Amino acid sequence: MKELLIASYDMEIGGVERSLISMLDHFDYKNYKVDLMLYKHQGEFMNLLPNKITLLEEVDQYTTFRKSIREIIKDKHYSIALSRILSKVNADMKGRIKGVEEPGYYQLQLMWKYALPFLPKLEKKYDTAVSYLWPHYFVAEKVNARKKIAWIHTDYSTVDTDINMDLKMWRKFDDIIAVSDACRQSFLNKYSELENKVRVIENISSPNFIIKLADEEVNNPMNHDQRFKLITVARLSHAKGIDYAVKALKLLKNKGYKNISWYVVGYGGEEEKLRRLIAENDLTESFILLGKKTNPYPFMKAADLYVQPSRYEGKAVTVGEAQILSKPVLITNYPTAQSQVKDGFDGAICDLSIAGIASGIEKLFKDSEGRKQLAENCRNTDYQNQQELKKLYQLA
């Protein structure tokens, strides 16, 4: 039996975490003994972890990546606190000098780089170690494994990082897994020298599980809303384009479409900024942030249209879930969009702009037959893909 380690940050609600749960649910435990290393044992998905895995104990130093600087100082990890301060100062400086819209990715790189000397190694030796969420420094530098694999969940060509710093890390891995062909290609646009290492394994989906959860009774204000209901399930972050969504709804209201409401399930650092934007545009009754939900599927089911207004994606887990629930789907034309939706068949792709999102919604709002056809095509598509795991077994 092979010894396998999978490492990630925590089990907070998110697409990456849902894809990890699905993978673990369908894993081959007859041939693999799986240890899961979570830097912090927190998040609503903790209780969804299958009992066939071994959850390793928290290591205090690694929990700092999910703590504030104040908390780190309180825990007396002074060196790590200093590394966090330095990473923030340097990233902010680079952001201002180079006009980087989102320096957070670079800051995360620096956080790990500066903290590495103060992080302990894992003593156990593994046949294979899998790093599930970037940056992959823990598995790259602190794990002893015969083979190392890293996962790509986003479109790295759109993310501002230090390429040379990243390359040193990526070179430590034997294989790099992208969640779609488009995700692989966008990654290679930035890191072309790694072409021979990058493979595609799609996110594992669990259609029966999703359909069953969608029927759960939850407190859902959408059930009493007679308007045309849009839904987005996403982190409240720059990448997900929720600010675009607010402005797109305002455009529609200005055009006379008063009978549309937009619900967002999710949480994140941009919540206050978004609430201000909603209020400024007089959309408090129409654009509704529902917050964090362990089970987003009843909300998806209650909607008339699923919309993904993202600036970039690897392959959005939630779009696939909406398709499993036979919902018409509208996504922006981010670089990997074509790998997610067959435009006009199981979803629609609109221009990646505020006007483009508004126009896409308007078109589908007016075309009820078109929406029905998209939903019917999703209903007749088999989204079962557990066979994707065989590709991982071949690498491990």
Results as ranks from 00 to 15, higher is better:
Tyr297Glu: 02
Gly256Asn: 07
Gly266Arg: 09
Asp160Gly: 09
Lys190Phe: 09
Thr294Cys: 04
Lys253Ala: 11
Lys52Ile: 05
Asn220Ala: 10
Leu389Pro: 00
Asp282Arg: 14
Tyr267Leu: 06
Val34Asn: 11
Ser237Leu: 08
Met37Pro: 00
Ala303Pro: 00
Arg171Ser: 08
Ile361Asn: 02
Ala234Val: 01
Gln109Tyr: 01
Asp175Gly: 04
Val89Trp: 03
Lys98Thr: 06
Asp127Val: 01
Gln109Trp: 00
Ser353His: 02
Asp215Gly: 13
Leu116His: 01
Asp127Arg: 06
Gln394Gly: 14
Tyr137His: 14
Ile349Lys: 00
Asp10Val: 02
Thr158Ile: 11
Tyr191Met: 11
Asn164Val: 06
Leu230Phe: 03
Asp25Asn: 15
Leu38Ile: 03
Asp25Val: 11
Glu12Thr: 12
Thr336Val: 05
His224Leu: 15
Gln308Phe: 07
Leu374Cys: 08
Asp166Glu: 15
Leu236Gln: 06
Gly360Val: 00
Lys168Ser: 11
Glu216Gly: 07
Trp112Ser: 06
Ile53Asn: 09
Pro335Tyr: 02
Gly95Ile: 13
Ile331Pro: 02
Thr336Trp: 04
Ile331Asp: 04
Met11Ser: 03
Lys113Pro: 03
Met222Ile: 05
Thr381Lys: 12
Leu236Thr: 03
Ala348Met: 15
Gly15Asn: 04
Lys363Ile: 09
Trp134Cys: 08
Ile357Ser: 06
Ala248Asp: 12
Thr332Gly: 04
Leu49Tyr: 05
Gly15Ala: 10
Val218Gln: 02
Glu58Arg: 08
Ser326Leu: 02
Phe228Gly: 07
Lys247Ile: 13
Glu280Thr: 10
Ala279Trp: 03
Lys250Trp: 09
Ser359Phe: 10
Arg311Cys: 09
Leu249Asn: 07
Ile331Val: 12
Asp367Phe: 11
Ile6Ala: 13
Thr154Trp: 04
Ser353Trp: 05
Trp151Lys: 11
Ile211Gly: 01
Lys142Asn: 04
Val246Ile: 09
Leu274Trp: 03
Asn333Val: 10
Thr294Tyr: 05
Ala279Gln: 15
Asn31Ile: 03
Asp28Ser: 10
Ala245Val: 04
Asp382Thr: 06
Tyr106Ile: 10
Val179Pro: 00
Pro103Asn: 07
Lys98Asp: 12
Ala396Ile: 08
Leu116Ser: 03
Ala316Ser: 14
Ser8Cys: 13
Arg371Glu: 01
Gln394Thr: 14
